[in-house]
Design a protein around this nucleic acid. Sequence first.
DNA 1: CTGAAAGCGCTTACAG
DNA 2: CTGAAAGCGCTTACAG
Lengths: 340, 340
Amino acid sequence: MEYTIKEIALRAGVSKSTVSRVISDKGYTSLEAREKVLQVIQELKYKPNALARAMVSQRTYNIGVLIYRRHHPIASHPFYGKILDAILTSAARLNYSVFVTTDHEMSVRSSDFMLEKRVDGLILISRLQQNVIENIQNFGVPYIMVNGSTDVDGVIHIVGRDEEGGRKAADHLTSLGHRNIYVLAGPQTHRSHHLRLKGFRHYMEHQETPLAASSIAYPGASTFEEGYSTMQKQWDHFRSGKYSAIFATNDMIALGAMKFLLEQSVRIPEQVAVMGFDDIDFAAMFSPSLTTIRVNMEEMGTQAFTMLDRLIRKEQVAESNMEFEPELIVRQSTGGKHLG
Amino acid sequence: MEYTIKEIALRAGVSKSTVSRVISDKGYTSLEAREKVLQVIQELKYKPNALARAMVSQRTYNIGVLIYRRHHPIASHPFYGKILDAILTSAARLNYSVFVTTDHEMSVRSSDFMLEKRVDGLILISRLQQNVIENIQNFGVPYIMVNGSTDVDGVIHIVGRDEEGGRKAADHLTSLGHRNIYVLAGPQTHRSHHLRLKGFRHYMEHQETPLAASSIAYPGASTFEEGYSTMQKQWDHFRSGKYSAIFATNDMIALGAMKFLLEQSVRIPEQVAVMGFDDIDFAAMFSPSLTTIRVNMEEMGTQAFTMLDRLIRKEQVAESNMEFEPELIVRQSTGGKHLG
DNA sequence: CTGAAAGCGCTTACAG
DNA sequence: CTGAAAGCGCTTACAG
């Protein structure tokens, strides 16, 4: 049953104002009135209507998470899903509810829905779209971008130090003795793939073992399937190149490539060492487990929400951007030892 | 800027009623008035306040998805996440927004939040809790249970035919010539793990190759880690048992066990065939890829939403329960051929 | 400490 | 075809 404050007031023998005061716990109420109201609320299992509340307080305590993805997975995405989990958990802690929504393409539909629902704030994940940004900006609702595909001025970005991560990957492989490394670089239109490759490449140049253009392949998407098929297509080329290691700009591509190599009976890491980037759950589970550069997705999600909450409450937000330091995780796929 | 219907009315030189009529496209309006209003709306990028609308129409066009999990992952869960993705997609198609929320324990907190927000309906995923059910039931909001841990009368359940799936698994392994099979059975308090084992066991009894109690191990949770560590603990026992195949009641357990076996240099499927249940994405990616019994999670999510929408619109809902037929997916881990 | 009144931004009959 | 009025369920000053 959906009771209203009016019904509670009636049964408790007080006015609606008084009921409101005890519910929101602000303003004075006599102990007697308070207890009577509380009792009726209990009996009726009354649940205040958050819509009506939001109506007058101009605050919904709802936020929206927009995940722009062309295809599934959305929430179950091994990378974005982790960020989402952290947002859900930290939002719940501060009594926010969260709308999760997705849009396949350059449409303003999802953001419009969220705006009409009067969310207090928005978190955008993945692909960044100018028209969506403008739509939100124009409406004046606080928002934050997590792992956006592009940096845009004036937008608060939460990202990893991908270039630094690329360097760490190169450092790890070269320190193991690898000189001839093959790179699988995801879509260069996406900020993180671009920076990871850039960092890796720069490091190699400083080592005076620059990456030849022929040592880089570009899978069409940052997926397992593309990692697999790219490796497959490049197999002859790869073999003739006598590469001793592979660096992929994300774990999914690395895993796909590994799967192909294992099917060719290549021994990993003895014959070829492999490393990825992200540290998605599967990386540790695969056999052999995948050496990678860990991006702290939980922390990114948590911070995104925390900053958004500050923005909502109009508190001072120190940084306009937030960068996370990636961490090398050595696992079976690079063996951790020298390879002649 | 947040404009109101009043502002639009003022600028268009009509009454609020008229504005309302053109927005919701019901009732008569002169073409002239209509166009004028539309134009102002465009100029101001007016977005109707869904809260106010919901207030009077008693309909929010929001649903809530409650995922009861003790730990992470939540949305990124390889099984529940898929269901969630399907719900998100089909909900968007009918212009619903969806709240995603989670609760760690036997609390009524999340459901109360959703109820206060006046969602039109609720989808419960995973662990089923009596007090939560009662809380929702009592409030009179339609809800549906997906893959619940227990069957409860009067609750609409969307589940897989797990017992039948267990039989299919047994049929597949025995048809390959396996007689001595080791089983890793997840928590028997959960409906699906229980039924999968039951179906498997029954089939074996009919084959007159019954499962000995010593051929079943019970990992403490349905996770990769538990699959791995259980296999590790049982390793000596397993070897002495001369088992030629393993059936795990879900993929995660199977994958964990496989990882351990591979690290012991066991050849899969030549020495030991392995199969799981669910067909999570990772099953196909693993090396060797995992033979499994596919549960159509997308379809389960889609149907859950579709039924919920019917319930919300008070349409007739034929079945009170919905069961999905699982499907055998043969992959590398059982080789697909006879093993002497 | 408490109640009556106004108002949040819409929709929905009801007159006209 | 259109506008004034009431009302959805709350909160928030304002008197008292």
